[in-house]
């Protein structure tokens, strides 16, 4: 089955295919659906037997910010073509740049626990980032050798700033 769309939900990826005018297949789950647009910010979606009242906080063509029963979802929708382009791009990145660890939040680097050249295991603590008065342990999402460290102790970092390059 070739999906119509690829949807990132928070950090998860799912595939979507439309069948006819009122059926949708999400991964391998098939539903009949009906969507009522109350206004541009409020939708009632019937998916199978379930009814969802969805608050659309904001959104563009490809990105939606949605609230359902107090849960907050951020989605990104890609067509097959966009999906392919992304895969090619990320392959290029992977081969050139190894694995980059970025800062999940703004804060201050309190302590670096590793030096360039050290090996790290997945889940191993690599640095302590202070934010909101708490010391947060930053763990490596990958195993490998530290190729480069982009920050120093006592320096502030922005969200998304490059921290470590692991190869």
């Amino acid at each position: 089955m070739i999906p119509d769309y690829h949807v990132d939900l928070n950090s998860k990826e799912m595939s979507v295919k439309f069948v006819g005018t009122d059926q949708i297949i999400i991964n391998d789950r098939e539903y009949r659906y009906n969507l009522e647009e109350v206004n541009g910010n409020y939708y009632i979606l019937r998916l199978g037997e379930k009814v969802f009242r969805i608050n659309r906080v904001s959104g563009e063509k490809n990105n939606q910010l949605l609230l359902i029963d107090g849960r907050y979802f951020e989605t990104e929708v890609r067509t097959n073509l966009e999906q392919k382009a992304r895969q090619v791009l990320s392959n290029v990145k992977q081969s050139n740049r190894n694995s980059l660890i970025k800062s999940p939040m703004p804060g201050m680097v309190l302590k670096l626990k590793k030096n360039a050249g050290d090996t790290v295991a997945q889940g191993e603590s690599i640095m302590i980032l202070e934010a909101m008065k708490m010391e947060n342990d930053i763990k490596s999402p990958f195993s490998g050798t530290i190729k480069e460290i982009f920050v120093s102790e006592k320096s502030p970092v922005e969200k998304g700033a490059q921290l470590f390059l692991i190869g």
Binding site: D4, Y5, R29, L45, L47, F52, Q64, L66, F73, V77
Partner: peptide
């Protein structure tokens, strides 16, 4: 989850499909 993740995915895809 109780189907909410699928609902969020479905709405996003339907809106894209419609546009």
């Amino acid at each position: 989850d109780n189907g909410r993740e699928d609902a969020a995915v479905a709405l996003s895809a339907i809106l894209r499909e419609r546009s």
